[in-house]
Deep mutational scan, measured.
Amino acid sequence: MAEAPPRRLGLGPPPGDAPRAELVALTAVQSEQGEAGGGGSPRRLGLLGSPLPPGAPLPGPGSGSGSACGQRSSAAHKRYRRLQNWVYNVLERPRGWAFVYHVFIFLLVFSCLVLSVLSTIQEHQELANECLLILEFVMIVVFGLEYIVRVWSAGCCCRYRGWQGRFRFARKPFCVIDFIVFVASVAVIAAGTQGNIFATSALRSMRFLQILRMVRMDRRGGTWKLLGSVVYAHSKELITAWYIGFLVLIFASFLVYLAEKDANSDFSSYADSLWWGTITLTTIGYGDKTPHTWLGRVLAAGFALLGISFFALPAGILGSGFALKVQEQHRQKHFEKRRMPAANLIQAAWRLYSTDMSRAYLTATWYYYDSILPSFRELALLFEHVQRARNGGLRPLEVRRAPVPDGAPSRYPPVATCHRPGSTSFCPGESSRMGIKDRIRMGSSQRRTGPSKQHLAPPTMPTSPSSEQVGEATSPTKVQKSWSFNDRTRFRASLRLKPRTSAEDAPSEEVA
């Protein structure tokens, strides 16, 4: 009796068929016929556990003709996506030579605008209408194809895939403007070719909807975003200037109206006075309405000098805001240009540092100066060695804690006790272990408590650290204090090793 083939788990290929790579489910599931010992083939499952149809090819690079078809379809799909992405970037994010197409579109729109203006002049109306009709045909074809291509290429973005995504893309403001202008152009052409009475009025009214094509030149909205950011950044200043200017306008108009309503027919109503105030304070000055009385002229002159300053403030605020924003954008561009080279330089330096163990090129690091100058660790070890030599091999803490019996001779020589300023008595072995921070803190506390006492003391002649007598400086308080830590004499004296002298005989010792 033939044995059933062993159940295979995992992703390994079956024996005897090495080139074939078959994806098997996580659990080997066989058909009921196979479990019962029949000759049925096992049921194939996909990666998600769903059964595959009987005629479906197995996924994998070596699955025969199905694999070749899959490779061809995958390559075609990649080319399709690449083309779609390229078209989308050309239309929505132009760079380099892609601006040539947008310059061509701008020339078409500008020519249409010029011809629309010439069509309103009686001398050039006939020729402009003929040229404009031909140009409209060209623009309908160009913009119609462009609109379709834009909607198709938007599928390269995830949020615009599918018919719902394309509809979302078509609802964008600039796409809506394109659609309105396209419909208006078709209506103008249809009305112009019919030759009816309505054609002339339709051409004159709907052609100027094509002015909206100038708005579509900035599809990404960079200028509007820049203007919005400047207004938002200086909103408080703008609101303040406009508010005060509006108050000056209504008060000036009302007072001039009261002064001129009886003697001047131009100011017969408050609305006429508001019109005069707006034209005057905005420095336009049509001259259609002028005050005639001396009181009205004085009020107009005073409020004009006051109001023009507030009406001119928004222009200066926006101008300075634009300058600052442009400078910030230039700085951001320079930062973006330098970020990648800086990151590459840091990575290269780290690779060199991690692979080169000698690091002989590091001549400006802490390790280099640590090898030249005595390190703080060596100074600490030197302090501890000196203290243990004086205390008979014991550390200062051990000397303080060691009990001394009554009447027993002390094995240590008597030492002079010292007192730290602002604290109780402490171990004499710690007097010379006072660090730089303690010395600086002690000097600052003395300056806070009594700076007036220092200038009363007789001035001391500054001497070099080499000429100081070591026996005289029994305490860190003898170090000359200065008002600034930048004094080199104080810094050098604080680094010197001060020996400890006994109370009975204080021989001067120098520590090399």
Rank of each mutant, 00 (worst) to 15 (best):
H330D: 11
Q194R: 08
P13A: 02
Y80D: 03
A170G: 08
N89K: 10
L135W: 11
I308F: 10
E32Q: 03
T200K: 15
I239M: 09
F182S: 05
F106I: 01
I211M: 07
V248L: 07
F110Y: 00
L52V: 04
E35V: 05
G49V: 07
V151I: 02
G12S: 08
V29A: 09
V103I: 10
L83Q: 08
C131W: 04
P14L: 09
S229A: 02
G144V: 03
G245E: 15
L345R: 14
E123D: 12
K261Q: 14
F198Y: 15
Q71K: 07
I239T: 01
I148V: 09
F137V: 13
V142A: 14
R220G: 02
R339T: 12
G37D: 10
Q30L: 14
R72C: 09
L209M: 03
F251S: 14
F137C: 15
D17H: 15
D266N: 13
M206V: 00
H77Y: 11
L313M: 15
R72G: 11
M214L: 12
L313V: 15
R72L: 11
D262E: 08
G55S: 01
V138G: 02
G10S: 10
I244M: 02
Q210H: 04
C112G: 11
S41T: 02
E146D: 10
R161L: 14
T120I: 00
I180L: 04
C131G: 15
N89H: 14
S111N: 02
L145F: 06
G302S: 03
L26H: 14
R79H: 12
G40S: 07
P13L: 01
S116C: 00
P6S: 10
V215A: 09
E130A: 06
K172M: 07
Q33P: 02
L52P: 11
T282S: 07
L238M: 00
K225Q: 00
K78E: 15
A128T: 09
G62C: 14
G195D: 08
Q347H: 06
W294R: 01
K78N: 13
P13H: 03
A343V: 06
R7C: 03
L23Q: 09
K78T: 15
D266H: 10
G40D: 08
R79L: 15
K325E: 06
M139L: 06
K236T: 00
A233V: 04
F104I: 11
L45R: 11
S201P: 14
I148S: 02
K225M: 09
C131Y: 06
I134T: 08
Q210E: 00
L281M: 06
E3K: 09
W97G: 06
I121M: 12
D272E: 09
A128S: 03
L9V: 07
N129Y: 08
Q125P: 10
S119P: 15
I134F: 09
Y147D: 06
G60A: 08
Y147F: 05
F137S: 05
V90A: 03
E32G: 03
C158W: 09
I121L: 01
E92D: 12
F208L: 04
A2S: 02
G34V: 11
D17Y: 08
C157R: 04
R171G: 14
A184S: 12
Q30R: 03
V87G: 06
Q327K: 15
Q327R: 15
L212Q: 00
G38E: 10
R150W: 00
I284V: 06
Y160F: 07
R93G: 07
A271S: 00
S50G: 14
R339M: 02
N196H: 01
A252T: 01
N196K: 05
G38V: 10
R166S: 05
A75G: 05
S185A: 10
S31I: 01
A343T: 08
R339K: 10
V100G: 08
S31G: 05
T200A: 14
I134V: 11
H292D: 09
S63A: 15
S74L: 12
V142G: 04
L133R: 00
C158G: 01
C156G: 11
D262H: 10
R82S: 06
P173S: 00
R207H: 13
H330N: 11
H330L: 13
V29E: 02
F251C: 02
V181M: 03
L107M: 07
E130K: 09
P42L: 04
S235C: 06
V24A: 07
T240S: 06
C157Y: 05
T223S: 00
C157F: 07
L209V: 11
T27A: 01
R79C: 03
G60W: 08
G16W: 06
L249I: 05
G70A: 08
A68V: 09
R166H: 09
S50I: 05
G10V: 03
T223A: 00
A76S: 13
S185P: 01
C131S: 07
I134M: 08
A170T: 09
C131F: 06
P5R: 02
A36T: 10
Q84R: 06
V186A: 11
F179L: 03
Y147N: 11
I140V: 04
R8S: 03
R159S: 15
V188A: 04
K78R: 04
A76E: 14
R44H: 07
I239F: 02
A263S: 10
S253T: 00
T120A: 01
N85H: 02
G195R: 01
A25P: 01
R20P: 04
G37S: 10
R216C: 00
L9I: 10
L135F: 15
A190S: 08
A199T: 15
G34D: 11
P173A: 10
S265P: 11
Y270F: 02
A187T: 07
A28T: 12
F104V: 01
A75V: 13
G70D: 04
R166C: 05
C157S: 08
G222S: 04
N89D: 07
P61A: 04
E3Q: 12
M206R: 00
F104C: 02
S253A: 04
S309P: 13
S119F: 11
A25S: 06
R95H: 14
G144A: 12
A259T: 05
V142I: 03
K261E: 12
H102P: 00
L132P: 00
Y80F: 13
G16R: 02
L58H: 08
R44G: 03
A18S: 03
W163L: 06
V176L: 12
S116T: 02
F198V: 01
Q194K: 03
L127H: 04
V183L: 08
A68S: 14
L306M: 12
N85T: 06
F110V: 07
C175F: 00
I140M: 03
G245W: 00
F167L: 05
V183M: 08
T193P: 00
L127R: 02
F143Y: 00
